[in-house]
Nucleic acid binder design. Structure first.
Length: 803
DNA sequence: TAATTCGCTAGACCGA
DNA sequence: TCGGTCTAGCGAA
């Protein structure tokens, strides 16, 4: 038989764990592999290698008690040669009847030795050992009972999944809907080709199916999922809201909520880091919200607020219909507005489907790359993804997977950070003719070039001269390649091949999109390895390794800057892997010749690249402290007129729109047009608008995240103060919530004056002039000799010419 | 409970 | 009420 792998989990039959595979051939089908058994390793120590056999027999006699006090034995004990921290070692391989027994024995075998690989989930263990990857096409033999006899082949493939997005609207007269009382009033769905709304009151649209009651509506939704044979159900924040709400309503209405393929179960929730993961029997489920959040974290999504509307706008460049969430109940009660609500509801499901279509290709490639099912990968952090990949590759290379650190050990690690990158202090000013160079994948290329790994550190096989010695003094093997450098090298090579292949395809073609997603997946993972080396809960934590990576990094960039100055360029600035050189009368060709000379002296896998030439750029001074330049804050204008801005207020979400827009226009006036007069008049106009009291409140909103519980703050910032007042007025503000507030006229301190946008009626013009607009533009205009007074009153004052 | 460090800035807080 | 210190958030890489 041939079918594509979708998911792996296990069921228990006669107290024995049996692997269950969900495969797709036309439809989802399930097969079982009873031949695979849970196991873990015990290392009895180097000095006891002669007693492996005796230890194995002793362990077979060992009895533990389960939670009910029943005695449990291991199934059997074999031995196996593996690489343990880079050295060959014979380990006890302990088989168990059930994955829960692995956990039971794990903590009780201290007298035998050190336990390894006892915390690998059974289904993942299966995928790792059998070298299975999601969506791959498997060839296999199975009997009539759907028991797999043998998997005879597997190859890379793609699968189209029957996908349906959904969304619910709830009645909310109190602001927040209460699942015990407030009904679900609409359920919208979209498969891409087909979409509609379920409700139980007429609304005058053609796409709504009107049912007799809320109960019938929920039942109809479950039917639809079954009818359409949904293989992948997607929602936006539905694991947190829509699914639990539907379940709670079903309970309140004493009806069933059955989404599962078994026709009995709804869904189960698993807590997973910061959010929940919902699983539905026999179907895949992906909550798009955590996926978008992940993409925002790595910079692939730029939007500061991750509402469905904002994200839709960013992806498709067009506005999505929206309603005032607090007034949904009013829309419901009003015959005319109910139609608007239905249209909005439908657009939610359709937008969710479209966003899912945008993000799933990348998630699919990540799943194939790290070898874990789609729903495990969606919303996983970079640390989890790197770990999945390394566990898989460690097995392939015959290496034992290191254990996770204890809580104390992790804490100790995080209290002991390493020195990071070098940032060159710039001098404030406006400069012409700048070349920007940067190292391509600096940290990954250092790790590969210098073989930085836990197992290659201080090896015993290389002499001092033979070793790679980092500027930090740490020594790495030059003979045997470590796990991390080998995996990373493979990733980088695959990515460069794909980038070449990409050029052969049309940008709109399916093939291009797939390859682009693959290239992106490789980049995301490759860039996360350095972080993983120093991540406190990492299995492969290597402090000396991480320290060596940054030390090499500082060495290479400083060396490049030194050589640039030697060659007659003026080094303006540099951060981690980049250097900004003023050409100083030199030509572009001379800059490129310099680049080539640097590359000649670098290891093979390292490369300095030309990021671009910029006719003009601005560095500003720091606000506080001495009048030095500010790091991580600059603006450049390219030869094509495009402006590259880093670090300024205008890229930050915790500044008002009016301040950011004014700063952006001032920067453009100076960089593009070179016009001081225009810049100054832009500022004056903004001040005039604010003074007139006519500035729209929406342009004055300052967004900030409430990262902790509202009552756990030592210092009450304006954002926290506004949020607390909103809570008093009946809104919910949990940790992680984004609040948008306005500084109003009422109150003494700025915090006193802060109110969330919905509660604000006026604004404090002086605050916005003196604390928002002026500080943000002064950073730039100071370089041109203007003072704050100049902007508030007349033109450039005589005092400036006093010296 | 989920990748790192470097750096800027505001506004609150606190003691003189 | 002034100035220094600290908390907190966000961005660059």
């Amino acid at each position: 038989m041939q079918a594509n792998l979708i998911d792996v989990d296990y069921v228990t039959e006669d107290e024995k764990a049996v692997i269950r595979l969900t495969l797709k051939k036309n439809r989802f089908k399930r097969f079982y592999d009873p031949s695979f058994e849970p196991y873990f390793y015990v290392d009895i120590g180097e000095e006891n290698q002669g007693e492996v056999k005796q230890a194995a027999r002793a362990l077979e006699e060992f009895t533990a008690k389960d939670s009910e006090g029943k005695p449990v034995n291991v199934l059997r004990v074999d031995s196996e040669k593996k690489l343990l921290f880079g050295r060959e070692r014979e380990l006890l391989k302990v088989f168990c009847k059930h994955p829960t027994h692995v956990r039971m024995f794990r903590d009780k075998l201290g007298k035998f030795g050190v336990v390894y690989e006892a915390d690998i989930p059974f289904a993942r263990r299966y995928m790792i050992n059998k070298r299975l990857r999601p969506f791959y096409k498997l060839d296999f033999d199975a009997d009539d009972e759907k028991r797999i006899k043998k998997i005879t082949g597997k190859k890379e493939d793609d699968v189209q999944l029957n996908t349906m997005a959904f969304d619910i609207e709830t009645y909310n007269p109190q602001g927040m809907p209460r699942p015990s009382k407030d009904p679900v009033i609409m359920i919208s769905y979209s498969t891409g080709e087909e979409s509609g709304v379920l409700s139980f009151k007429e609304n005058g649209t053609g796409f709504t199916e009107v049912l007799g009651s809320e109960e019938e509506m929920i039942k109809r939704f479950c039917e639809l999922v079954k009818e359409k044979d949904v293989e992948l159900l997607v929602g936006y924040n539905d694991a947190e809201f829509d699914l639990p709400y539907l379940r709670d309503r079903s309970t309140a209405l004493k009806t069933d909520f059955t989404l599962g393929r078994d026709g009995k179960t709804g869904f189960s929730l698993r807590s997973r880091g910061l959010f929940k993961q919902a699983r539905i029997n026999g179907r895949l489920h992906v909550d798009v919200y955590p996926v978008v959040k992940f993409l925002a974290l790595i910079g692939a999504v730029k939007s500061k607020r991750l509402t469905l509307e904002k994200v839709y706008e960013e992806f498709f460049g067009e506005k999505k219909e929206d309603v005032e969430k607090m007034r949904i109940w009013e829309y419901w009660e009003n015959n005319k507005q109910r139609k608007t609500l239905a249209e909005y509801s439908l657009s939610d499901a359709e937008a969710t489907k479209k966003i899912a279509d945008e993000v799933l290709p990348l998630e699919t490639e990540l799943a194939k790359l790290v070898g874990a099912p789609l729903q495990e990968v969606c919303g996983a952090t970079t640390g989890q993804l790197v770990e999945m990949l390394l566990m898989r590759e460690a097995f392939a290379q015959g290496r034992v997977i290191p254990n996770k650190p204890s809580a104390e050990e992790a804490k100790k690690r995080s209290k002991n950070p390493v020195q990071g990158a070098y940032v060159k202090l710039p001098e404030a000013g406006i400069y012409d003719d700048i070349a920007v160079f940067d190292f391509r994948s600096l940290y990954p290329s250092i790790i590969i070039s210098h073989n930085i790994d836990m197992d290659t550190l201080n090896c015993s096989c290389c002499s001092l001269e033979e070793s790679h010695t980092a500027p930090s003094g740490h020594r790495f093997c030059s003979k045997k390649k470590g796990l991390i450098p080998s995996v990373l090298d493979e990733l980088i090579q695959r990515r460069s091949k794909i980038k070449k292949e990409l050029k052969k395809h049309d940008k709109d073609s399916e093939e291009y999109k797939k390859l682009f997603a693959r290239s992106q997946a490789l980049k995301i993972i490759a860039n996360s390895f350095y972080g993983y080396l120093l991540y406190s809960r990492s299995r492969w934590y290597t402090r000396d390794g991480g320290e060596s990576v940054t030390a090499y990094g500082r060495h290479y960039i400083k060396d490049t800057i030194k050589k640039a100055e030697g060659a007659g360029f003026k080094a303006l600035y540099g951060d981690t892997d980049s250097c900004f050189l003023q050409l100083n009368g030199k030509t572009h060709e001379e800059a490129i010749a310099f680049l080539k000379s640097i590359n000649k002296g670098l290891p093979e896998k390292m490369e300095l690249e030309l990021e671009g030439f910029y006719p003009r750029g601005v560095f500003v001074s720091k606000k506080t402290g001495k009048a030095t330049g500010a790091k991580k804050k600059y603006a450049l204008i390219g030869e094509d007129g495009r402006i590259k801005i880093r670090g300024f207020e205008l890229v930050r979400r915790d500044w008002s729109k009016i301040a950011k827009e004014t700063q952006r226009r001032v920067l453009e006036a100076i960089l593009k047009e070179g016009s001081e007069e225009k810049a100054v008049s832009i500022v004056r106009d903004a001040i005039k608008l604010l003074k007139s009291g006519e500035a729209p409140l929406d342009d004055l909103v300052i967004y900030t995240q409430i990262r902790k519980k509202l009552n756990s703050y030592d210092i009450i910032s304006p954002g926290v103060s506004a949020a607390r007042k909103a809570v008093k007025a009946g809104t919910q503000v949990d940790a992680g919530a984004m609040v948008g507030y306005v500084i109003t006229r009422k109150g003494n301190s700025i915090s006193d004056k802060a109110l969330v946008r919905e509660m604000a009626g006026d604004y404090d013009a002086d605050y916005y002039i003196n604390n928002q607009v002026l500080p943000s533009v002064m950073k730039i205009l100071k370089e041109l000799g203007y003072s704050e007074e100049d902007l508030k009153t007349g033109g450039k004052q005589a005092t400036l010419f006093g010296f």
